[in-house]
Design a binder for these strands. Structure first.
Lengths: 225, 225
DNA sequence: TAACTGTGGATTTTATACAATATACAATCC
DNA sequence: GGATTGTATATTGTATAAAATCCACAGTTA
């Protein structure tokens, strides 16, 4: 097992052990390796990662805040798959919050901002064609964050950031529908274009439709399985 | 469960030390005792509460997830007052999210739910007259939570819970405007009445207006100072 | 048999000890 | 003098040990 030698390779992607433990557990949950309702024993995880229980505990607390696990005092942590099953709620929230953010942010976006956005869009297209799915999720999050940067609403942005992180896994799924891929690319470009042209209301509407389209595609996909 | 169990001393309302430490720090931030950007030293907090650093660390991790503090690896935690600074943003979010929750929840509220809500409303009125401002905030949060309980949207509810906690300090302030006091009481009752009568859309509208009214009163108050 | 009680073991929670890292400040070099 | 490097100290991060809590189950009693 990978634990005998704690090399500074992939195991040290983060600056603290607790953070990388959180990342590892998160991935296990996303990948379905840990099923819904499954209990997470601290000592087991600690042994598996070759670390002590203290950072494991901190990781679990973090994950609880993200809604991925549920901690009951003195009883332990269990996987809260509910957070995953509620794709609809996540997208419903995004549909509500993101257009609002865009409406407030777009009028204050500078020329430099637009250039940065264009750069991301460009890389985005390139990566899409190269089937680099993981990177795609990162870029998607980055793009949205950039669009909302000038909204002057840090709280809302923090909430949306979490929603985007939660969406990530599903948006990647949706990517596999080949028409979803090109469609998203088009819609993103369209939204950026509308913002640049000053058509803020139209951009917000387009964004809402974009999010709704992804949601419906995912719901349909889930129903088919 | 609105049990009749007499709440034991406020000293240890929580089941773990870490949780009560989080609660204490949270309160300090909300009350402005800890100012924006102020560093939070683990050993200082531990000494102050008479506990070890371990639960303090867990509390800080929790609070970071809530956006109340920012933790930089190996540097420590600082108060992230940005989340508090904008009353307007908090209420803007509430205005957006709460009516949505109510719309989804109200049709599924049971008779027992309504009885519990009425009970809170009653205690609410009593406490208002007794000028017990702190308890008022708790009841307000509880009332809103009960109204949204059947929405089947745990994520959204979690977000709103945080917003309510952040609002608490300000709503207490607004209470001091004597007409704000009676007005809130009336509006709460009105919303409950509309829900019970099946006028869900009207209830949602009333709720949005209620939140907007409080926001505007607070903004006006802030401007006057 | 059914309900109750206490006991043992497993697990979490907290405390303490140790290691790693960052910051401030003095000494050195150009 | 200014920048850089080295060292001291403070603070955080991790490991390990001790205390508290829960859970199952055997044994007792009516």
């Amino acid at each position: 097992m990978p634990g005998s030698t704690p090399r500074s390779g992939a195991s040290f992607a983060h600056r603290t052990v607790a953070a990388s433990a959180a990342e590892a557990i998160r991935r296990k949950i996303f990948d379905g390796e840990l099923k819904d309702g499954e209990p997470l024993r601290q000592d087991v995880l600690a042994a598996e990662f070759g670390i002590s229980r203290t950072p494991v505990r901190e990781a679990l607390v973090q994950l609880e805040a993200e809604g991925l696990v549920r901690i009951e005092p003195h009883k332990g942590a269990v996987v809260a798959g509910a957070a995953l099953s509620s794709i609809e709620e996540t997208f419903e929230l995004r549909e509500l919050l993101e257009p609002m953010l865009l409406t407030h942010s777009a009028p204050h976006l500078t020329e430099a901002d637009y250039r940065a956005i264009d750069a991301v869009l460009k890389e985005y297209s390139a990566e899409l064609r190269s089937q680099n799915v993981r990177r795609w999720g990162e870029l998607n999050t980055k793009l949205h964050a950039m669009l909302y940067a000038r909204a002057g609403r840090p709280q809302t942005q923090a909430i949306v950031d979490k929603l985007l992180a939660a969406s990530d896994r599903f948006t990647r799924l949706q990517l596999l529908l080949t028409d979803g891929l090109e469609r998203a690319e088009q819609e993103h470009a369209e939204i950026a274009r509308l913002c640049r042209g000053g058509a803020y209301a139209a951009a917000a509407t387009a964004l809402a439709q974009h999010i709704r389209a992804v949601k419906e595609a995912l719901v349909a996909l889930a129903a088919k399985r």
